[in-house]
Design a protein around this nucleic acid. Structure first.
Lengths: 198, 198, 198, 198
DNA sequence: AATGAATGAGCTTTCATTCAT
DNA sequence: TATGAATGAAAGCTCATTCAT
């Protein structure tokens, strides 16, 4: 009956959606949300402007979807903690992972910061962002407890601040920023062994 | 009708310029650069749209001027260091000043971060921003030298990262952020006596 | 898979067509022609957008079909005049029928008026509408002849105007309109006995 | 001081505004509200699209302004009733005035009817329309009281219905409609002397 | 110096219609 | 017969910038 099978349609839909999401992610990260036009997204994705509205209700909706998409992807990796590893090792892994993410998707981190700092973000998005921040803190807190810090919550937040600050420096200066030095400096504070090859 | 003297014209010109700059600063900081319209600036400044173009070439030009203006004002205060104070006291003063500035002009700090992170900032502006960052580092470096740090340059940069990270947290969360705790934590690391009343 | 017989296809085709027509009628009547989208019609009819174009050439074509369809349906009822009834009774019946129709299908009457006033001039449609109007007049004319009016054609048209005016009032004001009073007033003019229960 | 005097600006502003209003009136009446684009209005008015938004907030706002404008203009004439004239004469004048208006601005009357019948008119507009209708009725009511009608309110409304019906007929059929005959027929009912030259 | 009317390019969004399957 | 993904033209609207005065 069906001219295209449901599966075929699903595949096509998913492809388009992904193309849009990828294009939007790239452009939002590169130029920011305001400066990125729907026309640009469509062109980058190789589809028509109209099709975007077939998949998303508005430009803001695209941003939310890009966001959700990335959260989901990130979460997968984030959650792969080795149960048996020591707190120090876990902390090390988290730092390294953040480092890799930062290097690979600086645009996205930039966008995240922009959104986190924005005065009037879209409804529903700011919650996501704050949850993301809070989630990170909560995840790190037990590690500091295990490491014997008296006020683990405070330490977790302070750790977050350091990571944020280093991120900012890297994003602002790029390769001119002594990223590795800063990371090493950070690891030292938490008695993490530094891999010399890095 | 009444032929104005050069002096009168100069005064009027300066007044208009300041009004524009103030209005632009406020709005840029509050809503961001893209979202702030020239019409809004004119309205806030209490002058006409056209007049802005007598003083500045473009919207970007206004931003640059706002920036320069603030750098100049900030520098004045920044430089009022007491020659006789100890490095620790000076560091303390710098931290406290940053704290006050952050609390009083969160919009401006926000704007600074936005600009610092922007990929394609306007010609000439990014240099300014980087100089501003570098200036801060260079200013702090001698303090760490005096405090006996081996790699003072690195420590200065790390200190900057921490300050940036704390700023970000405060800007993102506002009063929900444990700003004072973070600052105290920072001061502790540098053996700065913490004023209990704060 | 299952090779359909011609009859089966015919049945399916007719069903789809009717579903489209019903959905379109409802939406056109409720929201007007311009505001009703093909997507909305498809959704209301429970079929796909594409299918509409298998049955009709365009949105305008759908409107024409809706129109024709309703004319046909209406005509059936309209023609059921009792041969033996007096002119006054017949007139009464016509008025009552119009009243019922108006109350039951205000959307349709509204649509008719919209079309009669031809905001959207569609080739071929306006003729239909004028024929419909003329048909009504011609149907009423013999009654006024039988009632002894000198200029029956004129009286028929004047009667039509009154009916139209009352319809408009009702459609514009809804239940706030003293519909029954107006109808009674009209019947009085033609010496029609008024049923008190109304 | 002022580069253009306030008076000059006022004149320019008024000119533009009138040009827009005239163009919009003409096009709305001709093609209807939906079909008339802002671009078309701008072109007809001989100005840019953007300028319309300098004067009006939205397309709907233009319609409201057109409406208000016409109400105001109409009111002026409508109110010029001779205090000394008899009720019959006044009624006659009202009928004649309506007739002239209908002939001169059929598009506008059409638009009025469309708006009056529309299910979801813009906020604020429907009130205007109903007030306009009500206003007419209220104005006519005293005349019927003076003429000795028992239920003057009802008669006023019935009179309105007749006028509406005749308008509709004329708008639907144009010059094919026996407008003068219908008007004469109406006047006869109220014992208004008919000017033979008409 | 100052105004604000005016422009026009470009924005987001809608939707009748087409087409591969 | 039937689907719905995809298109593209055109809509309403915004805004940095220009210009006559």
């Amino acid at each position: 009956m069906s001219p295209r099978t449901k599966e075929q349609n699903e595949v096509i839909r998913t492809q388009s959606r992904k193309a849009i999401l990828n294009a939007a992610f790239e452009l939002f990260a590169l130029d920011g949300f305001s400066k990125t036009s729907m026309a640009a997204i469509a062109k980058e994705a190789g589809i028509s402007k109209g099709l975007i509205y077939h998949h998303f209700e508005s430009k803001e909706d695209v941003l939310k979807a890009v966001f959700d998409n990335l959260i989901a992807e990130t979460a997968d990796v984030w959650l792969q903690e080795d149960e048996n590893s020591s707190p120090v090792d876990t902390l090390n892994t988290i730092i390294d992972f953040s480092l890799i993410f930062m290097k690979q998707s600086p645009g996205w981190v930039r966008l995240l910061i922009h959104l986190a700092l924005q005065e009037d973000v879209m409804e529903g998005l700011s919650e996501h962002i704050h949850q993301l921040r809070e989630g990170k803190i909560l995840q790190v807190k037990p590690l500091f407890e295990a490491l014997g810090y008296e006020n683990a919550a405070e330490e977790a937040m302070y750790f977050g601040a350091k990571m944020d600050g280093i991120s900012m420096g890297f994003l602002a200066l790029g390769d001119e920023y002594p990223l590795q030095q800063m990371i090493n400096r950070l690891k030292l504070e938490y008695n993490i062994h530094i891999d010399e090859t890095e």
